[in-house]
């Protein structure tokens, strides 16, 4: 267990007020306020085997054939190799009938990695408790993807789920590990839609809805201490089946126990749509 500060939405809008914003490349322009932070206990659940079915997240051993994971999102051939691996992993772990990737791998770095971040968009870890999508943006993403796949009609499936597959690409210890919230402890009424606005360099802006949260002492926060690049944390970001874990809120946090001078954490994530009839 570790005690650390995490950040919830502290200014949820009242009825009729505009949706809060989170500007990924210039957080000072965000209307969302997440101060002051909240000290919480984050349990190391390594060894307790959380599952996608129960908590909404699961740790999976996987060694990638990609020799240098930092080369992802920059080498199209490696991205494809990694994509095929993760598609196969998700099929195996979930038993889904079909899995489609939602874009390629995305690298993220702690804020101190300025030289790395300079060449990437939306690549800092999000420092607020969030779910990757709202109901609206989940449907937008799933239908957008389905519109690119021949003969794929979501209505022909009984269940569709969006997943995030997250892997550190630097060895432990990590200064900014990922904390995940047991989906069973999340009350829908504590979700606050937040419009993330991210810069597409050289083009414009891209907006998508995420779920922020207000603080809730019932949230059970978990992490896997010392994750290695040979481990993938798979978690649900939207499940159309109301009897299943709906969404795992998550946030990067600063581990107060990480030795000073440790190189900042880097990670790679990939999102996918899984389907069942």
């Amino acid at each position: 267990m570790v005690r650390a500060t995490i950040h919830y939405v502290t200014n949820p809008p009242g009825p009729g007020e505009p949706m809060l914003t989170y500007v990924t490349e210039d957080e000072a322009r965000s209307t969302m306020c997440v101060e002051p932070g909240v000290d919480v206990e984050i349990s190391d659940v390594r060894g307790t085997n959380p599952t996608l079915r129960r908590e909404g997240f699961q740790l999976v051993d996987h060694t990638s054939a990609v020799p240098d994971l930092e080369a992802l999102e920059g080498d199209a051939d490696l991205d494809r190799v990694y994509g095929r691996e993760m598609r196969s992993l998700l099929r195996d772990v979930t038993g889904a009938e079909a899995v489609y990737l939602l874009g390629g791998p995305k690298r993220r770095y702690g804020e101190s990695a300025t030289a790395k971040l300079e060449h990437l968009s939306n690549a800092k870890p999000a420092r607020y408790v969030h779910g990757d999508v709202t109901e609206t943006s989940a449907l937008q993403q799933a239908t957008g993807l389905a519109s690119m796949v021949p003969r794929l009609h979501l209505r022909e499936y009984d269940r569709w789920v969006l997943y995030n597959m997250w892997r550190p690409i630097t060895p432990p210890p990590h200064d900014h590990p990922l904390a995940v919230c047991d989906a069973r402890t999340i009350a829908p009424r504590h979700r606050v839609p937040v419009l993330a606005i991210t810069e597409i360099r050289g083009f414009g802006h891209f907006e998508f809805e995420t779920n922020g949260h207000v603080a809730d002492p019932h949230h059970r926060w978990c992490w896997f201490r010392d994750m290695t690049p040979d481990e993938v944390l798979v978690f649900t970001t939207f499940d159309s089946d109301p009897t299943r874990p709906h969404q795992v809120a998550h946030t990067a946090f600063t581990d107060p126990g990480c030795p000073p001078g440790t190189p900042t954490r880097a990670s790679v994530e990939l999102r996918a749509l899984a389907l069942w009839t």
Binding site: G83, L102, Q141, F206, F208
Partner: peptide
């Protein structure tokens, strides 16, 4: 899917 970041893919589609 593997040829763009999720942000770019969704921006393109939109």
């Amino acid at each position: 899917g593997a040829d763009a970041s999720v942000d770019l893919l969704l921006t393109g589609l939109d």
